[in-house]
C-alpha cells in the first residue's frame, strides 16, 4: 500500500514545520533542538523509504539514529522523540530484509530510552526469528506476551506471539492465553467506539502570546552517562 500524493505533500509540510521549529528551539534549548531535528529526519527517512527510495531512506534513518545516540539521553519520562530512532530504523531495516542489521541497531539502541517497550520487544523477536535465533525469539516473545497480559484489545501480533511460543518454545499440550483481559475480540468494550465530534486537531487556543519569543533560562544538564556504568533491573 502506497501513501497517496496528498499524504506525501502533508508529510513534507510537516517535515518543513519541524525543521523550522528546530531552528527556533535551538535558540533556547539546543538539546531539544536536536530531538526536533531527529524527528524531522526520521520522517524524511520513512517518507523516502515508502516512496521507493529504500536505501536513501535507510541512510537518513541511520543518520537520525546516530544523532540520537550521540546526544544526552532524555532527562526523564516517556520517550522523546516519541518513537525512538533506533526502533524506527530497525523497523525499516527489517522491512528491507536486513534482520542482522536490525538486531544490531536494537541491541545498541535499547538503552537510550525506556527499556522493555512493547514495540522494541516485538522487533527484537521478529529480527531474532528471521536470523534463526529461536531461543532469543522465544525470550522476547515471552516477555512481550507477559507485558501485554492485561491488554484491553485483541492485538494480532500478540496472538501470533502466543502461537509462536506454543509452536516453538513450550512443551507439548501447553497453551498460551493471549486474549484481552477485559473483553473478547468480537465484543467491544462498553463505550467503544463512542464518537465525539471533536479532537485536539480542530481546536485552537488564544493566539499571539507565544509569538513573543521568550528567552529561556539555560538549565544545568548532567553530562552524558556511560552506558556500561550500571545495570541491575
Amino acid at each position: 500500500m502506497a501513501a497517496s500524493n496528498a499524504d506525501s505533500v502533508t508529510a513534507f509540510q510537516a517535515i518543513h514545520f519541524l525543521e523550522n521549529e528546530a531552528e527556533l528551539i535551538y535558540l533556547h534549548r539546543p538539546e531539544h533542538g536536536d530531538n526536533t531535528e531527529i524527528m524531522a529526519l526520521l520522517l524524511r527517512g520513512v517518507l523516502l523509504f515508502e516512496e521507493g527510495s529504500q536505501q536513501e531512506g535507510l541512510t537518513v534513518l541511520a543518520e537520525a539514529f546516530k544523532w540520537e545516540t550521540n546526544i544526552d539521553p532524555p532527562r526523564d519520562g516517556p520517550c522523546m522523540p516519541i518513537i525512538p530512532s533506533f526502533e524506527l530504523y530497525a523497523r525499516y531495516l527489517l522491512k528491507a530484509g536486513q534482520a542482522d542489521e536490525a538486531l544490531q541497531v536494537l541491541k545498541s539502541g535499547n538503552y537510550t530510552s525506556s527499556r522493555n517497550r512493547g514495540s522494541t520487544l516485538l522487533l527484537f523477536a521478529q529480527a531474532s526469528e528471521q536470523t534463526g535465533d529461536l531461543k532469543a525469539a522465544c525470550t522476547h516473545y515471552e516477555t512481550l506476551v507477559a507485558n501485554f497480559a492485561i491488554m484491553d484489545l485483541a492485538i494480532r501480533e500478540i496472538d501470533e506471539a502466543g502461537a509462536f511460543l506454543v509452536a516453538n518454545c513450550l512443551g507439548n499440550g501447553t497453551t498460551f492465553n493471549t486474549s484481552p483481559a477485559t473483553r473478547t475480540a468480537s465484543a467491544p468494550a462498553s463505550g467503544y467506539p463512542a464518537a465525539l465530534p471533536r479532537s485536539f486537531s480542530h481546536l485552537e487556543l488564544q493566539e499571539g502570546v507565544a509569538d513573543k519569543r521568550i528567552r529561556l533560562q539555560e538549565m544545568a544538564w548532567s553530562p552524558k552517562q556511560q552506558r556500561e556504568s550500571l545495570g541491575h533491573c
Partner: peptide, 12 residues
C-alpha cells in the same frame, strides 16, 4: 512537534 511527528508517521 510530537503531534506533527506522530501524525505523519501514522500516514506510513
Amino acid at each position: 512537534t510530537a503531534a506533527y511527528f506522530a501524525r505523519v508517521n501514522a500516514l506510513f
